[in-house]
């Protein structure tokens, strides 16, 4: 059994690493919700600091979670770079699409505030 685990350790990182990633993912999710709660309750500590930065905090945390799952659970870290490319290139186009549409519509609403 142990020998088998050792041979596979090389191809795919073992359960210990997966558990560490799971814990980090869990903590980051907790941090996301915490940031949300802090920003919505003026009575909580650090409210002034977190409140204006909520969206930025959430984007950074969720991007980090995304990257962790992709790298370790989807094995992109040790798999072929071709797979990474097949994921990252569409992600770039997808991000550009979302940002471009948001910019276009906020610009449009700036030009025509009445509508």
């Amino acid at each position: 059994m142990d020998a088998q685990v050792a041979t596979h350790e090389h191809a795919h990182p073992g359960p210990a690493l997966y558990l560490r990633v799971a814990v980090i993912l869990f903590v980051m999710t907790a941090l996301e919700v915490l940031a949300f709660e802090v920003s919505h309750r003026p009575s909580m500590p650090l409210h002034e600091l977190v409140q204006p930065l909520l969206n930025e905090i959430l984007i950074i945390l969720s991007a980090a979670k995304f990257a962790l799952v992709a790298m370790f659970y989807m094995h992109l870290k040790q798999d072929s770079k071709i797979f990474s490319g097949l994921f990252v290139f569409p992600l770039i186009i997808a991000a550009v699409l979302i940002v471009a549409l948001l910019l276009l519509f906020s610009y449009l609403r700036l030009l025509h505030p009445a509508a």
């Binding site: 072929s80 097949l86 994921f87 569409p90 699409l97």
Partner: peptide, 27 residues
Amino acid sequence: ATGLDTRKLAIWTFIGSECLFFATLIS
């Protein structure tokens, strides 16, 4: 030709395509 499994390449290609599907819904 790449040494990669053909079906695994296909699922990654499909996942790449799905990114745009969800990006449009999120937009």
